[in-house]
Amino acid sequence: MGRPLTERVADAAAPAVLALTGDLERPARLTVPDLLAWPQHRVRVSFECATSGVQHHRFEGPLLHDVLCAAGPQFDPGRRKDRLRFLIAVTGADGHHALLSWAEIDPDFGRAPVLLAAGIDDTALDGSGPQLVLPQDRCGARYVSGVNAIRVDGRYGPWT
């Protein structure tokens, strides 16, 4: 269990909901407080933003891999390569999209420490929803704010 964020922003509206769907045994609807149930990781990042230059932030939240594994991706665990056909589509409330491969976040392959951040700069993201954070990216184009949908899709590749 991670430590609570130091500052929680009061929001009269209901917390933002993230829908996990697709090829999952346990699709789910999660809020930022739900994301605090996973081990929390903290990262300091710098990335270039096309509209506002270089950004510097501290993010905290669970690894995307951990959250998706808890939802039970429908690949054959006995066949390591079966995971390679899975794609992860992330959508933000503003319509921004990013696409990742399962291999990119899998510890046996790319091992990228992609976060589903529950907080930014010690402020909880309860009202706006979590943020996709790719600390390894120099450009911030795949950072998605207000994530409201993640779809895991395994219909790609010759293994289907």
Rank of each mutant, 00 (worst) to 15 (best):
T6L: 13
D122S: 13
R58K: 01
Q74C: 11
V9I: 15
A16Y: 06
D106K: 02
A28D: 12
A124M: 05
R80H: 10
R29C: 05
R79E: 14
A141P: 00
A141I: 01
V67H: 07
G61T: 04
L30T: 08
V67R: 08
L68E: 06
G146K: 03
P39K: 02
R155T: 12
T31P: 09
D137Q: 12
L100R: 04
L125N: 04
A10R: 06
G61P: 04
L20C: 07
L134T: 13
V133F: 11
H97A: 11
T91N: 06
W159Y: 12
P27W: 04
D122R: 08
G129N: 05
D11N: 12
T31D: 02
V43G: 05
S128N: 03
W159N: 09
V114I: 15
G92N: 08
G110W: 08
G92Y: 11
G127N: 01
A118S: 15
R8D: 09
A13M: 05
A50D: 14
S101E: 15
I105P: 10
P15R: 07
A13S: 12
A12I: 11
I105Y: 10
P62T: 02
K81D: 14
A93N: 07
W38R: 01
A149F: 00
S101G: 13
L63D: 07
G146I: 10
